[in-house]
């Protein structure tokens, strides 16, 4: 697959040395909280009880991380998050690709009207529907299920909008040629058009995955059983019990541990993510 590399033109006049220094200073602010978190996570809770300035002194320890391996529910939460975010993303990709193709390249009655209505959906914030959704899912017995956590995301209009834009940008003669061969619409979509939209799929997939991974309010009220907690909710549930619970060091270690998967995925796909994000913008 062709991967459009974003090249940053070296001769751009916009970047200059003082600006770069400014960015360097900001990057310190960016990193300091994380460094502090890591520092806390490698101190024993006993040391931290005496004062957190002990972070700047020896001894350091991995005991908090060992405790996670022994007892924490982080693994279960992680798995839930992966399942929910993956399912959510796949669903959105399938639905948005189909709908985007339909809206962009086919004609059917009320196409325009329906598209405008769907666009209107872009403006509906989660808050306006969440209470009714919660009641609806109660009746359908969908709370505390993976499906119940994924489904609301399927209705997002953002993906449809994005895919419609991408399908529109594909030159018309490509599918016209295929049509002469008497290929069916679905075949054209599947064999010819879809492969062309892979970069767009990546953009949408990454956005959707990150959105689902970070979702807070819906899992907060839908996943109310501990074994169904997503990472976000699990960490929240231990974080607010601060003093009564395992202590600062353990909490910090849990946070570091819980953010590792996202950071690792990010580091691996970094180049692609950058391209995807930028690609989404160039419209």
């Amino acid at each position: 697959m062709r991967e459009p590399e974003v090249t940053y033109k070296p001769e751009s006049l916009t970047a200059s040395r003082p600006l770069l220094w400014g960015a360097a200073v900001l990057s310190l602010i960016m990193m300091a909280p994380v460094a502090w978190l890591v520092g806390l996570s490698i101190k024993s809770n006993q040391d931290l009880m005496m004062g957190t300035d002990s972070v700047f002194r020896f001894p350091y320890t991995l005991v908090n991380y060992l405790n996670i391996l022994h007892s924490s529910q982080v693994f279960g939460w992680l798995l839930n998050s992966v399942i929910v975010a993956t399912g959510h993303t796949l669903g959105v990709l399938v639905l948005s690709s189909l709908a985007g193709y339909g809206f962009a390249r086919l004609e059917f009655p009320f196409r325009r009207t329906v598209f405008v209505i769907v666009l209107f959906g872009l403006a509906v914030p989660e808050q306006a529907v969440i209470i009714a959704r919660h009641q609806m899912f109660s009746w359908l017995n969908l709370h505390n299920t993976y499906l119940g956590l994924m489904l609301p995301g399927f209705s997002s209009a953002f993906g449809v909008f994005l895919m419609t834009q991408f399908f529109r940008a594909i030159p018309k003669d490509i599918d016209e040629a295929a049509l002469l061969d008497n290929a069916s619409q679905f075949r054209i979509f599947w064999k010819i058009m879809l492969p062309l939209t892979l970069p767009a799929q990546a953009t949408l997939g990454i956005f959707t995955f990150l959105g689902a991974w970070n979702d807070y309010w819906w899992p907060l009220i839908s996943a109310t059983r501990k074994e169904m907690y997503t990472l976000t909710i699990g960490i929240a549930s231990s974080q607010t019990n601060f003093a009564q619970s395992e202590g600062l060091g353990f909490l910090a270690a849990q946070a570091v541990f819980a953010s590792l998967p996202a950071i690792i995925v990010y580091l691996i796909f970094q180049r692609h993510i950058v391209t995807a994000v930028s690609g989404g913008a160039v419209k």
Partner: peptide, 19 residues
């Protein structure tokens, strides 16, 4: 299941959803 003190928001959501 350990909930954030006092846990009534969550209990309300559970009761509402029959869980």
């Amino acid at each position: 299941t350990t909930v954030e003190w006092p846990g009534y928001d969550q209990l309300n959501a559970q009761l509402a959803s029959g869980a």
